[in-house]
């Protein structure tokens, strides 16, 4: 359907993008208003922009610490999950083993498990191991989400690599593991990278486990930390909008750089090719 785009189409497009982006635009405009103005008027633009909300956002709460925590936990989770998944997906797509269907079925089922169904036993395990309020205590439960996700996405990428290359490597006398390391892995690198981005975003956004396991303020992650800005007595919308802008910027950058990859990763599991 390669129709030419007319003026009406672009107007529609601008309205669509504006509606989707409106919350961000408004939150940004709010974050640079003086605090008094937030509560008194609905003017779009302030006449005296200020950074006081930003200063308050990073000093009233350890926002930068939240970001560090999220970064460490998400990175470690991503490396572990994608590492395990690369082996498993290679085995399940290209090696002659039994029970592939069963394994993929279990993986798909595991990715559908509601987190609330595993949270109490995992809470008990993490408490017994003395890992509450630590990075390891979050990486363990995060694997329940990220490992099935990585295997599911990666197996489509592995399947797309042509089988002829492997056959010729075999004929040249390469061992199965050499084939994996020297032939398949380099070819799969873009797919692995795409998977890693999606897993990283999923781990960065996780809320339930982070809320339950790391209850100490210095160990909180970004999503939980942000939701704790509102107190019983007051809602500091200035701080909240500034904090929202600060934590959204890294994601905007990530999305702008890797948008093509993200889309290919998201759609790889849902479209037959």
């Amino acid at each position: 359907m390669n129709k030419r785009a007319g003026i009406g189409f672009y107007i529609f497009l601008i309205i669509f993008v504006f509606l989707v982006m409106f919350p961000f635009i408004w939150v940004f405009l709010t974050s640079i208003k003086p605090v008094g103005e937030i509560f008194t008027s609905f003017k779009w633009f302030t006449t005296n922009p200020t950074t006081e909300s930003y200063e308050a956002a990073v000093t009233n709460r350890p926002l930068l610490r939240y970001m560090l925590n999220s970064f460490v936990v998400s990175t470690v989770t991503t490396i572990l999950a994608v590492g395990c998944a690369a082996f498993a997906s290679y085995a399940v797509t290209r090696l002659p083993i039994k029970g592939k269907g069963l394994f993929l079925g279990v993986i798909l089922a595991a990715s559908m498990f509601p987190q609330v169904a595993v949270i109490s036993p995992i809470f008990n395990i993490v408490t017994e191991l003395g890992l509450r309020n630590s990075y390891t205590g979050l990486v363990i439960p995060y694997m329940t989400i990220s490992l099935p996700l990585s295997i599911w996405i990666l197996s489509t990428f592995f399947q797309k690599i042509p089988f002829e290359l492997e056959e010729s490597a075999k004929l040249d006398g390469a061992s199965p593991f050499q084939t994996f390391r020297k032939i398949i892995l380099p070819l799969a690198t873009p797919g692995i990278f795409t998977t890693a981005i999606l897993v990283f975003i999923a781990a960065w956004n996780e809320y339930l486990f982070a809320l339950t396991i790391n209850s100490d303020d210095v160990w909180r992650t970004v999503p939980v930390g942000i939701s704790m800005y509102q107190s019983e007595y007051s809602v500091p919308w200035g701080d909240i909008s500034a904090a929202t802008v600060i934590v959204t910027i890294p994601i905007v950058i990530l999305v702008l750089i890797f948008q093509r990859r993200i889309v290919s990763g998201l759609t790889s599991g849902s479209v037959k090719e």
Partner: peptide, 28 residues
């Protein structure tokens, strides 16, 4: 589903709400 200029901007603007943490979106 057609060819037009500015696909990148549309794609990015569509991905950002998906990519931010739900808790942050809920706060907004």
């Amino acid at each position: 589903n057609r060819t037009f200029s500015g696909r990148g901007i549309v794609r990015a603007s569509v991905l950002i709400p998906w990519a931010i943490p739900t808790a942050v979106g809920a706060m907004m």
